[in-house]
């Protein structure tokens, strides 16, 4: 098991610090908590670990109404009530109404799976606390059927957070932590290469320039992120926009083509238009 090493995949560029953190978590069988700007590939990381290490991937997407219990199992009381009213035979065995959650599924896998707990900060404040023992011991007790479920192999648990709520210390202590920084221009070039290997060099250079310029504009409500850059490049390719359209002096004087992929907020577009107007005036 120790020779398992995640080194990124053919469609995911992992920086050295990210690889170190992931490998530590994989080896010790402890959860890894991933934070970072939206659109830097937090969720995708779990998919790529699963792909890179050839493990099954189980996903648990957390919402504001999600309870920790739902990750373990749920007791479908309504179904049982209906069955009892209809006189179904199944009603006598409560085990028929226990619905397994993603954690239970992960514990039952024959080979070590990857379990993604996505956007844990969306849930109630108590949510992480309710999972402490399960993440630590990788086992839990089912009250309805009096059985203890123990993980066959400690799953590789990847937890993502957007920092909307602070996570309790007791929870953090049990995790490895990694913060995905916004990639610098070189890493970004690698990332784009992985996604669009046939992209023309000039187009990429101009696009990256325009993109980083745009991120530098002060006062943007939502800075465009990696995933938005990739979407935008896809559009540029589809529309066959020539590199010249992005380049040179008029970069600060016109909106970049297909800017809708980068600016997702009408205030930001207005702000940018105002800046362009000022630049044009100064340029004259």
């Amino acid at each position: 098991m120790t020779d398992l090493r995640f080194t990124g995949t053919d469609r995911y560029v992992a920086t050295e610090d990210l690889m170190t953190a992931v490998n530590a978590a994989v080896t010790l069988g402890r959860p890894i908590l991933i934070k970072g700007e939206p659109g830097t590939g937090k969720t995708q990381l779990a998919e790529e670990i699963a792909r890179g290490l050839e493990r099954p991937l189980l996903q648990w997407h957390v919402k504001s109404t999600t309870k920790a219990q739902q990750g373990l199992y749920e007791y479908d009381a309504v179904a049982r009530l209906r069955d009892s009213q209809l006189g179904d035979e199944r009603v006598h065995d409560i085990a028929n109404y226990i619905v397994k959650g993603p954690m239970w599924e992960a514990f039952e896998q024959e080979i070590q799976p990857v379990l993604l707990i996505d956007e844990i900060d969306k849930a109630d404040i108590e949510f992480p606390n309710d999972l402490l023992r399960e993440l630590d011991r990788m086992e839990f007790y089912v009250y309805e059927t009096h059985q203890t479920v123990v993980a066959k192999h400690r799953p590789i648990i990847v937890i993502t957070s957007n920092n909307e709520k602070e996570l309790p210390d007791a929870f953090l202590r049990r995790c490895f932590f990694h913060y995905i920084r916004f990639p610098d221009a070189d890493t970004m070039r690698d990332i784009v290469d992985v996604h669009y290997p046939n992209l023309k060099k000039e187009l990429l250079n101009e696009a990256l320039h325009a993109f980083y310029d745009l991120r530098e504009v002060p006062g943007l409500k939502k800075k465009p992120s990696t995933s938005e850059l990739l979407d935008w490049l896809k559009l540029l390719l589809a529309e066959d926009v020539p590199p010249e359209a992005l380049s040179g002096d008029d970069r600060r004087k016109t909106l970049p083509p297909l800017h809708g992929a980068l600016l997702k907020n009408e205030q930001d577009v207005h702000l940018f238009e105002r800046l362009i107007f000022l630049n044009q005036r100064d340029g004259r």
Partner: peptide, 12 residues
């Protein structure tokens, strides 16, 4: 350094 950071620091 990367290992120590991942283990010991839980807040960017």
């Amino acid at each position: 350094y990367y290992l120590a950071r991942a283990c010991l620091v839980k807040n960017e």
